[in-house]
Amino acid sequence: MQYKLVINGKTLKGETTTKAVDAETAEKAFKQYANDNGVDGVWTYDDATKTFTVTE
């Protein structure tokens, strides 16, 4: 399945996608991506759209 990440950071904004077997695996990949880019915020997930959002 394909999952999307929407980033609403202080210095980084945008979107990225990943393919993963489940939401938990996608979340780990997205959190690593956010961490690598210095984004630390509040996470939400919408199962209907398979979209994670992180807001600083």
Rank of each mutant, 00 (worst) to 15 (best):
E56F: 06
V39R: 02
E24H: 12
K19R: 15
T49Y: 05
T44H: 11
I7M: 07
K28I: 11
N35H: 15
D47V: 10
M1Q: 14
A34Q: 01
K10R: 14
A34R: 01
Q32K: 14
G41N: 01
Q2E: 14
T44C: 08
A20C: 08
D47Q: 11
G9N: 05
K19V: 15
T16C: 13
I7H: 03
Q2R: 11
Y3K: 01
Q32D: 09
L12V: 13
V6M: 07
G41A: 02
T49H: 06
Y33S: 02
L5S: 01
K50T: 04
V39P: 02
A23G: 05
E24M: 11
D22Q: 04
T18L: 14
G9T: 15
K31G: 03
D46N: 09
T11R: 10
T44D: 09
V39Y: 06
G9P: 03
K19N: 14
A29F: 15
F30E: 00
G14E: 12
D47C: 06
V42Y: 08
D36F: 07
E56G: 05
A26F: 01
D36S: 10
T53G: 03
E24G: 10
K13Y: 12
G38S: 07
D22P: 01
D46I: 04
T55M: 07
V21W: 13
K4G: 04
F52L: 01
T53M: 08
D47F: 07
G41I: 01
Y45W: 03
Y3P: 02
E24W: 11
A23Y: 14
T51L: 04
Q2I: 15
T16H: 14
K50F: 10
T17P: 02
K10V: 13
T53W: 08
A29H: 15
Q2H: 11
E27R: 13
G14L: 14
N35Q: 14
K19F: 15
A20F: 09
A34M: 07
A29N: 09
I7W: 08
E27A: 11
K28R: 11
F52R: 00
A48C: 08
I7P: 01
A48I: 11
Y3M: 02
T55G: 03
T44L: 07
E15K: 07
G14A: 14
W43G: 00
D46H: 06
G41F: 03
Y45R: 02
T49L: 07
N8G: 04
T11F: 14
T49P: 01
W43Y: 02
D36Q: 11
G9Y: 06
E15V: 13
A20T: 05
Y45P: 00
K19C: 15
D40S: 13
A26K: 00
E27F: 15
G14T: 14
N37P: 01
Y3A: 01
A48D: 11
A23I: 10
V54M: 04
L12W: 14
V39C: 05
L12N: 08
T53S: 06
V21K: 14
K31I: 08
T51H: 03
G41Y: 03
D40R: 13
Y45L: 02
D46S: 06
V6P: 00
A23L: 12
V39H: 04
G14S: 13
K28C: 07
Y45A: 00
T16R: 12
E24S: 11
Y33P: 00
K31H: 09
D22K: 04
V42L: 11
F52M: 02
T51A: 03
F30R: 00
V21D: 11
E27D: 04
T55I: 08
Y33H: 05
A26Q: 01
V21P: 15
T49D: 05
V39M: 06
G38Y: 05
D36Y: 07
K4S: 07
T53A: 04
T51W: 02
D36T: 08
V42M: 11
E27I: 12
W43L: 03
A20I: 03
T17W: 15
V42P: 04
K19P: 06
F30Q: 00
F52A: 00
K28W: 08
F52C: 00
D40N: 14
K19G: 06
A48Q: 10
E27G: 09
Y3N: 02
E15S: 13
T51K: 04
E24V: 13
K10E: 07
G38K: 08
E56D: 08
A34N: 03
I7K: 00
M1E: 15
K10D: 06
K31D: 02
D40T: 13
A20K: 03
A20L: 03
Q2C: 14
K10C: 13
T11Q: 10
K31W: 06
T55V: 09
E56K: 04
D40G: 08
T55Y: 09
A26D: 00
E27K: 12
E56S: 06
A48P: 07
V39T: 03
D22I: 03
K13A: 09
D46K: 03
K19M: 15
